[in-house]
Amino acid sequence: MIEILDVMKSFGDHRPGEKDTVAVNGVTLNIREKQVFGLIGTNGAGKSTLLRMIAGILKQDSGNILIDHEPVYDNPEAKKQVFFISDDPYYFANADAQDMADYYRSILEGFDVERFTKLMADFGLDPQKRIAVYSKGMKKQLAIILGVCSGTKYLLCDETFDGLDPVMRQSVKSLFAGEMQERGLTPVIASHNLRELEDICDHVGLLHKGGVLLSEDIDAMKLGIQKVQCVFANESDSARVPQGISVLTSEQRGRLHTYTVRGTREQVQDYFAGFEMTFMEILPLTLEEVFISETEVVGYDVRKFILG
């Protein structure tokens, strides 16, 4: 498990009288093993900073980051469990993919050379070709392959899916799923695109301005919120709806009311059965709608940045 305990990180000279930029502001998160953790937020939310701290690249100003109960910064034993894929991966000058694989093999005991060869073939990448001539997408694919083959327990991906075409994106998602099943890989994926993460993540954490707005299992999130569309026989009944249930959002178009309410499907059904309705339907929510609803309540309009 990765434990992030009240971590703070700011950038600047810490000079008196000058304001530093707070990148991560008291974040507390737990990332359980064998689940795909999605870290969502806009640019500047602190996703990359947080990932780099988990990878042991940056040192937090305060708080703790533990990997399997071991602090990660400057700790080779903890770092052996983690492979970090940057948004712009670095490769040795004039190296080819095989050179990089050889290098990782020399520093990571669990690097699987055969798997690397197979995946390179599956993804259509030539291991003897200089990486400098790869496209941006191919470089990212290579980074992912190297990460998967490293044999580490945790794979940290910083905006890795950007630059991949939809087919490749699906391939990578399948790859992650396979690794998770086979050896219990735990991917942590940072992105500003919620739609991209929807069908792969088990757990999502939303960062905004360095803080965590919410951190929930997707299933649990969806279970606890329902969208209800209804038409009241008696229009005045609509005023009584918020009295007995937690209404997150409400919208009206003519006589059609749309409510996002907290509660299980059965609870919501039972509650609305108490009203005389001309029409009522409980609809599934997308992850996006769940997020919007949850964050609107606390005053954030996240629509503009999670839609990507």
Partner: peptide, 16 residues
């Protein structure tokens, strides 16, 4: 002096 190279090297399991 390079953020990319720092990401690469500092994420590796080697004491500073």
């Amino acid at each position: 002096d390079s953020r990319r190279q720092i990401d690469f090297y500092e994420s590796q399991p080697e004491k500073r």
